[in-house]
Simulated assay, not measured.
Amino acid sequence: MSDSDLMKLYSQRILALAADMPLTEPLPAPDMQAEARAPLCGSTIKVQLAVQDGRITGYAQEVHACALGQASASVFGARVIGCTRAQVAQLRDELEAMLKGGPVPAAPFGDYEVLTAARDYPNRHASILLPPTAVLKAWPDPS
């Protein structure tokens, strides 16, 4: 990867998101928790969830990832409270599609637009997908 490619990929906005990650304090009594790892780069995330009436009411994340994974966790953490499992699954599908050239995920996750520059770097996609992947791992599908 050339220096200009790195500059394009790691924009100021991505770096600012990575530096301002929300919801990093552990939950006192999580209902669910899981860890996910991106095999190519080794990025990891541990998540804790509190769920009431089918919606996320509490969320905590411990992220050890590149700036792209951190930016993804920042966007996710800022919008995940109130989401249902179905909405998180939809986000994961939309985010994966966006990274393959599709549209940016629907509201409230439109801020993922900042990561469209990562489309050309498939080895980074798993790190970006870590937050919703970990939540879905923690929160089994009831069907």
Rank of each mutant, 00 (worst) to 15 (best):
Asp5Pro: 00
Leu9Gln: 11
Leu9Tyr: 05
Leu9Cys: 03
Ser11Glu: 08
Arg13Lys: 15
Ile14Trp: 02
Ile14Gly: 00
Leu15Thr: 09
Ala16Cys: 01
Leu17His: 13
Leu17Gly: 04
Leu17Thr: 08
Met21Thr: 01
Pro26Ile: 04
Pro26Arg: 13
Leu27Ala: 00
Pro28Cys: 04
Asp31Leu: 03
Met32Ala: 13
Glu35His: 06
Glu35Phe: 00
Ala36Gln: 10
Ala36Glu: 12
Ala38Lys: 10
Pro39Gln: 13
Pro39Ile: 00
Pro39Val: 08
Leu40Asp: 11
Leu40Pro: 02
Cys41Phe: 04
Gly42Ser: 06
Thr44Met: 14
Thr44Asn: 02
Ile45Arg: 12
Ile45Met: 14
Ile45Gln: 09
Ile45Asn: 02
Lys46Asp: 04
Val47Met: 10
Val47Trp: 07
Gln48Thr: 12
Gln48Ala: 14
Val51Pro: 00
Val51Gly: 02
Gln52Thr: 14
Asp53Pro: 07
Arg55Thr: 14
Tyr59Phe: 15
Tyr59Lys: 04
Ala60His: 01
Glu62Val: 07
Glu62Asp: 12
Glu62Phe: 02
Glu62Lys: 15
Glu62Pro: 00
Val63Ser: 04
His64Pro: 00
His64Phe: 08
His64Met: 10
Ala65Ser: 12
Ala65Trp: 05
Cys66Val: 01
Cys66Glu: 07
Ala67Phe: 13
Ala67Met: 10
Leu68Val: 11
Ala73Arg: 05
Ser74Val: 11
Val75Leu: 05
Gly77Gln: 06
Ala78Ile: 05
Arg79Tyr: 08
Arg79Ser: 13
Arg79Ala: 15
Ile81Gln: 02
Gly82Leu: 09
Gly82Met: 10
Cys83Ile: 00
Val88Phe: 08
Gln90Asp: 13
Gln90Glu: 14
Gln90Cys: 03
Leu91Cys: 08
Leu91Glu: 08
Leu91Tyr: 11
Arg92Thr: 04
Glu94Val: 07
Glu94Ile: 05
Leu95Cys: 06
Glu96Ile: 00
Glu96Ala: 15
Ala97Ile: 06
Ala97Thr: 11
Leu99Pro: 04
Gly101Asn: 09
Gly102Arg: 10
Pro103Asn: 15
Val104His: 08
Ala107Trp: 01
Pro108Cys: 06
Pro108Asp: 13
Phe109His: 07
Gly110Ala: 15
Asp111Pro: 00
Asp111Leu: 12
Tyr112Cys: 04
Glu113Trp: 15
Leu115Gln: 09
Leu115Ile: 08
Leu115Thr: 08
Thr116Gly: 06
Thr116His: 11
Ala117Lys: 12
Ala118Ser: 13
Ala118Arg: 11
Ala118Phe: 12
Arg119Trp: 06
Asp120Val: 11
Ser127Phe: 06
Ser127Ala: 15
Leu129His: 02
Leu129Glu: 04
Leu130Cys: 03
Leu130Asn: 06
Pro131Ile: 15
Pro131Arg: 15
Pro132Ala: 10
Pro132Met: 10
Ala134Gly: 01
Lys137Arg: 14
Ala138His: 05
Ala138Ser: 07
Pro140His: 08
Pro140Trp: 03
Asp141Ala: 13
Pro142Arg: 11
Pro142Phe: 01
Pro142Thr: 14
Pro142Lys: 13
Ser143Phe: 12
